[in-house]
């Protein structure tokens, strides 16, 4: 009788522990997915492409003739896929930023500065010359 009671109690305690454990694991998984989603959204390449293209376009717009501007893009280029050879293209009054092949050609934004723009990449820096 006592032994049976002991077995029942043991089973019950085990059941409670497993249920609680599953619940805790579910909560952890749930919040991890939520955290991953939020962090991925904040640093997704499409957003980064748009932000970088607009920043470069506005920099060119505001620049005066004869100036040289260096923009540090190290952190942006960390997100670049290896297959992309030219992540930044500036041509014909358009700035194109492509970091991932998924974005189908990247993001393009226009600028209105009519002076000729020379650019080159040196390491993680974009060097712009307004002629």
């Amino acid at each position: 009788m006592n032994f049976q009671h002991y077995l029942n109690m043991r089973n019950k305690i085990g059941e409670i522990l497993i249920e609680d454990l599953i619940y805790i694991i579910l909560v952890i998984v749930f919040f991890s997915i939520l955290f991953l989603f939020v962090s991925r959204q904040g640093s997704n390449t499409a957003l980064l492409e748009e932000r970088t293209a607009k920043q470069i376009a506005l920099t060119i717009d505001a620049a005066e003739v004869g100036t040289q501007i260096t923009i540090n893009l190290e952190k942006v280029l960390e997100k670049k896929q290896e297959e992309i050879e030219r992540p930044i293209k500036i041509d014909n009054n358009k700035v194109n930023v492509e970091l991932s092949q998924d974005s189908k050609g990247g993001y393009t934004y226009g600028y209105f500065n009519g002076n000729s723009i020379l650019y080159k990449m040196e390491g993680g820096n974009l060097i712009l010359e307004i002629k």
Binding site: V65, N92, N93, K94, T108, Y109, G110, Y111, F112, N113, G114, N115
Partner: peptide, 9 residues
């Protein structure tokens, strides 16, 4: 004024 105001993106 050295501006290009056509958006051809």
């Amino acid at each position: 004024c050295k501006l290009v105001l056509k958006d051809e993106t």
